[in-house]
Design a protein around this nucleic acid. Structure first.
Lengths: 189, 189
DNA sequence: GTCTATAAAGCGATAGAC
DNA sequence: GTCTATCGCTTTATAGAC
């Protein structure tokens, strides 16, 4: 039986996991070779730019996933509350209830940020902007909506740190529940 | 003029900065050599355990700082509200208004966590426990205090991610202000 | 498209002179 | 206590056969 992975698109999720687990500088080509089952020759055939290109492609892939599964639903003007619920649902799913960290968040913390500055900046900016708009449509005042959006996005990122530090996914799911409750309550505040 | 750095305690803060900026795997001995102004011989004289010992010592140093400047004030039973205010003040100071990341948070996200699991777990557990107790003394119900404490600690960590992603310290200071306001309001909720 | 072999540089760590 | 020299290994990346 031949190897099933032959397409570039099949490699990207594996690359994502390695970068999430090891960080950019900690992800070695030897481990990527092992996890993908592909030799260096193949890897450089798919990604001539090496590790940096691999990470960039993964970042773009994550951005696409969030655009489709989070940002677009948030922009749905018909039912903004449903869009927000979808965001929390997608977050629980994507981050595997806190067992999986946010690649963009991991890259943001150390000097890896400087390598991918605009991708990292755009990801969070787009998230906050889309959520702010949805909250306004739900009745939040302009400034309150923006503040709440920053609180929610920061809250999710922080909950990932906390959950991993305690090695406890429940810490993440609890935090998500509370954030969701806040977005539903008192738009007048 | 002779070099001013000769004591181990003088090196620790520099090590902290390097680990914060590069992460554990990204922090190379050659950069540590450069930033401390000490050769490898001196470094291994102070830290026979190499990089791992350096990181452990920095983690312990951070834990000490927080014990003194954050956890102890939070445990002050006379004026719990003042303890909470001191926590926010110390956080703004320590994290340089979001220009400096949390070393423990950075270590928590990737596989560095497994190397220093208990130190990382204890740091956040101690923070949440001390803050929970202070909030209870301020009138929060048991469960609400714990929830709020988790929200605040996660909020600070997430705000660091966000501020760095946007390269904007104001994102951090704004988040701190909102978290502080939440700890002051409606203990009945 | 995938492999192995290899290059050149950097890594963490050690030895030993001073 | 600090240095330089060096070891052995891993790193990213390339070359070239198939």
């Amino acid at each position: 039986m031949a190897r099933s992975i032959t397409e570039r698109t099949d490699i990207i999720p594996v690359l994502g996991e390695v970068f999430r687990e090891r960080g950019f500088s900690g992800a070695s080509l030897s481990e990527i070779t092992l996890r993908t089952g592909l030799g260096k020759g193949s890897l450089y055939h798919f990604f001539p730019g090496g590790k940096e290109e691999m990470a960039k492609v993964v970042l773009d892939d994550v951005a696409d996933w969030f655009e489709t599964n989070v940002f677009a639903p948030l922009r749905n003007t018909d039912d903004p509350a449903a869009g927000i619920d979808q965001m929390f649902k997608a977050s629980l799913l994507f981050f595997r209830s806190g067992r999986r960290v946010c690649l963009v968040g991991t890259f943001a913390l150390d000097d890896t940020r400087d390598r991918f500055a605009t991708a990292i900046q755009d990801y969070f900016a787009a998230w906050i902007r889309a959520l702010t708009a949805a909250l306004r449509r739900c009745g939040f005042a302009n400034r309150a909506a923006r503040a709440m959006a920053e609180d929610v996005v920061a809250g999710i990122q922080g909950a990932l740190v906390l959950a991993r530090s305690q090695d406890d996914p429940a810490t993440f799911t609890r935090a998500i529940k509370r954030l969701q409750a806040r977005t539903r309550s008192t738009p007048a505040a």
